[in-house]
Design a protein around this nucleic acid. Structure first.
Lengths: 205, 205, 205, 205
DNA sequence: CATGAATGAGAGTTCATTCAT
DNA sequence: TATGAATGAACTCTCATTCAT
């Protein structure tokens, strides 16, 4: 970012541009979301756009960062009430919250998720993965006596990404015949069963 | 495809172009893989490219289709020996084969997987998902007495996509500190545990 | 047109581009008048060309429209002084004016007329024909008692197009041994004789 | 033409290519009538096309030449029966024949006339004009005592081109509400009246 | 600071022409 | 002699970026 937004006005402009970027991608796909179009959607000139962002790439980065931060914040909001619950309830609660989140802002995030494959989207997953690692660490600390995990790094990687990536896959499909609560239920069940099994028959690796 | 390649030479050209497309994307990313660049990599002229493919998009489709077909074929090769095994062994076997596959062709597929987010990659997942659905159906028929699944559509969606998408995620990371057999083990364990649990406490949905 | 030219500068650009288009066609023929070439002649970049015109076709349309409009305006200028004269004088006056017009702008229009066959030039004739129809209608109204025309549509079509198309044909020839006033005289005589004859022996159709 | 067609086969090929050229232009317009397309329509390969014609331009020239020759031949066929008639009947007869000609060959020539403005079509008019000059000369010789023309070059130019160009203009319009016999009648009347008037009040020039 | 007209490199695509078979 | 796959220059058009106002 060229300028640190010192004034309210600047911050608003930055926000408007990021949101416009999201909206432009949602409408036209990444390839046809031009800087001019973004500027129009944001209600400013292209020149102004370049006063706050070095390049189109910087705009995209900022959008993905905001998306990551928003999703991470969402998790943090619920974390306290979820850390005490059992695995199934925790996963269930988190996924429900994510789904709810995706539908706000007039479906902007949903539309973005549908254009997921066009975004340099792994950045968001990276951030979320790191965040979820931390959440999981906290969760496991609280339930220390319940779980004995031989290879926590790999297990957490599989758990977190199975959930996130299946969610992305589900959201990427424009017309699925599956309801979101069916997906949430199955994912919750799967993770609960896996966590349960880890105690009974420890992982070999 | 504009011309049906009747001669060996033509088929070779088609293959060369598809491979060059893969290589160009792997090297420079989808956005900078221009038709001219692809033609140079394939050792032919742009004109030739357009004698065999209607557009750049058609080339990409062909590449993704070949990737899908190759991966589907890979599954089919192993299917007989895997259908009789238990869930864990089956998943383990399949994933091992996929990993092996990704490393041939001088790592082209691996590099493609790393650029996954730039591809219209859901096409491949679509095909693989459909293929895996069929494989799972066959598997469940053979082990009819072992599994009672209340909501097979949702369960299969979660099982298949958890595996595929986690795999993609793993392959997308250039430098993971996790070894591939750790991932395979965990995924195998998770699915085995899930399948097992379905009999004991049937899904609610 | 992509942008409505709000400022003087914009209108100048539009004009420069249209004129450059005319010049490019006059110099190299329609087939070799590329957008880049036109932009260079206009002293701007290709990008600017496409900010003011949607396509090369739109540029050509604009050129032809300007030509039509200019010629139509030319007719309107003289209309009052011509409507009262006899047929011969009217035709004579109009054609003289057209010839004069073709020689201004450093002979651009003359050169365009010589490349006539390469233009989608019927558009200009269409407009001029419609305009001339109206002029002729006014003329006939003023001389109502002189002419009784059985099939006015066909007669006007033949009168107008004989004049226009013969003029075009004459201008298309780079080196004619006929002087323009010879052509004007003959055309005037022919139309005068024809109009005269219509009263004496009405058309059969 | 690269080769003088020594054998029947060659002549057939040349003819087939010229006709295919006409058909391709009639179907797709000059700009989109590619050599490959022409070759396909002619039932030969592009390579063969280039054995008989140096370039696409040469093909177009040959087509226009054939068109000119065919039209000139048409005039010659009727010439004897027309030279003795009065001006009106002669013009009427000639135009009727031309219209009939345009409708043979499944309307190929008609379609070509509609694409007239895209052709380098003045070549045809050139040839026809020269031919018509000769015909008119013969006509005037036979009716020497009837017509006294002060400026025969200009008069013939206007007469011939008024007729030809108005005809072209009429044929160029896809949907005219005027019938062809209306056009023929008016043109005949006009020329007859003009010729008549030349005796009464000689041209001034 | 904001603007948006201007830029121009580079994209995808076409097609007249050639030449090894 | 006939073929048609291969060529590549040239085309139209886009859009991230700049800079005079």
């Amino acid at each position: 970012m060229r300028k640190s937004p010192k004034q309210q006005r600047s911050q608003k402009m930055v926000d408007a541009l990021i949101e416009a970027t999201g909206r432009a991608i949602a409408e036209h796909g990444l390839a046809h979301a031009s800087t001019n179009h973004i500027a129009v959607l944001a209600g400013v000139s292209v020149g102004s756009l370049y006063q706050y962002f070095d390049s189109k790439g910087a705009l995209l980065e900022a959008l993905l960062d905001r998306l990551s931060r928003d999703l991470a914040g969402l998790i943090d909001q619920r974390i306290d009430s979820l850390l005490d619950a059992d695995v199934r309830s925790t996963v269930h609660g988190l996924l429900s919250a994510v789904f709810a989140f995706m539908q706000k802002d007039e479906g902007l995030y949903l539309e973005l998720a549908r254009n997921w494959h066009q975004l340099h989207s792994m950045r968001v997953v990276d951030v979320l993965e790191r965040h979820m690692f931390e959440v999981c660490r906290l969760y496991l600390l609280r339930h220390l006596n319940q779980f004995r995990i031989a290879n926590p790094h790999a297990v957490l990687f599989v758990i977190i990404n199975s959930t996130l990536m299946t969610l992305i896959r589900y959201l990427s499909q424009p017309n699925s015949h599956l309801r979101k609560d069916e997906i949430i239920d199955c994912l919750s069940d799967m993770l609960a069963a896996y966590m349960q099994s880890l105690n009974e028959a420890p992982v070999k690796a």
